[in-house]
Simulated scan of single mutants.
Amino acid sequence: MTDPVLDLAPRGSISIDCVVNGPISTNTYFVVSGDEALIIDPAWEGDKLAERLRAAHPGARPVGIVCTHGHGDHVGGVAGMRRALGDDVPYLISASDAGFVRDAVASMRVRWGIDTEMPPAPDRLLSEGDTVAVGDAVLQVIDAPGHTPGGIVLFCASAEGRVAFMGDTLFPGGHGRTDLVGGDEDTILHTLGRLFRSLPEDTLCLIGHDGTTTVSDELGRNPFVAHALSLGL
């Protein structure tokens, strides 16, 4: 697979709120641009997340719910948000992970006893090269398999800087687990190689759990990134 081709020119303005929620502390992101809002990875109790969104950004109209991958702790709030916000708010996920969600939710139920409400059928299927608009900003879709078969990263170059919503593909000093259903170690190393050859060093990486990092920091300390790049993966 060739490396992603990204538009690095700043476009539009965004603000980002992070809400930690769910049984294993997932980061849900509200991306607001102008009078529109995009929700990324609603983990749990979507009705309460919708209340948080309305309270924090009362003038922002929700234009989409995007999930970076199909694990239950990243899709568990989709159904509740749709009930609260309306069925006209589209739900987006990768084409590869759309059919993986049911098995992933079942696996989490068996493995950890976490029961997750099944999301509805997606309204739009994403793959590399697609874009998702919010206000005057644009998020670019990058295929990022390895943690799941159809994980994606969402990259945005805005007036405030460059940001990548990584889901569970990257963690500071490491990468997402590959021992869960759908994971593959070789594949995630290939993904890291593609990402770190393509993302600018000043890109802020917003992670699915815990804290943030940057491309520059990971180039200097992440042994998995270094390994992937050294092998030309």
Results as ranks from 00 to 15, higher is better:
146 G>K: 02
30 F>E: 03
176 G>I: 02
164 A>L: 07
7 D>E: 15
228 A>R: 11
105 V>S: 08
28 T>Y: 02
136 D>E: 11
178 T>N: 01
9 A>W: 14
217 D>S: 13
179 D>I: 06
23 P>S: 00
39 I>R: 11
176 G>H: 04
21 N>G: 03
177 R>Y: 02
146 G>D: 10
81 M>Q: 07
58 P>S: 00
207 I>F: 12
160 E>G: 01
209 H>L: 12
46 G>S: 01
74 H>K: 08
230 S>C: 02
149 P>C: 04
152 I>K: 00
27 N>M: 05
36 E>L: 01
23 P>N: 00
214 T>H: 13
181 V>G: 04
53 L>M: 07
16 I>K: 11
148 T>Y: 03
8 L>G: 15
134 V>Q: 04
158 S>A: 10
229 L>V: 11
64 G>T: 00
104 A>Q: 12
44 W>C: 05
171 F>W: 06
177 R>T: 04
43 A>N: 03
150 G>M: 10
165 F>W: 14
106 A>N: 14
51 E>C: 03
228 A>Q: 10
19 V>F: 09
164 A>M: 08
48 K>V: 01
6 L>A: 14
107 S>N: 12
85 L>G: 06
196 F>N: 11
164 A>R: 07
46 G>M: 02
227 H>T: 13
195 L>C: 14
61 R>T: 00
91 Y>E: 10
192 L>G: 06
114 I>K: 03
129 G>T: 15
61 R>Y: 00
108 M>K: 05
149 P>L: 07
10 P>F: 13
101 V>I: 15
218 E>S: 12
85 L>F: 09
57 H>M: 01
166 M>V: 11
101 V>K: 13
227 H>E: 13
174 G>K: 04
195 L>N: 14
216 S>F: 13
51 E>T: 02
196 F>L: 09
32 V>D: 03
164 A>Q: 06
3 D>H: 14
145 P>I: 05
194 R>I: 12
229 L>M: 12
84 A>P: 10
118 M>P: 05
115 D>K: 02
9 A>S: 14
3 D>C: 15
138 V>S: 08
30 F>Q: 06
163 V>N: 05
29 Y>V: 01
151 G>A: 11
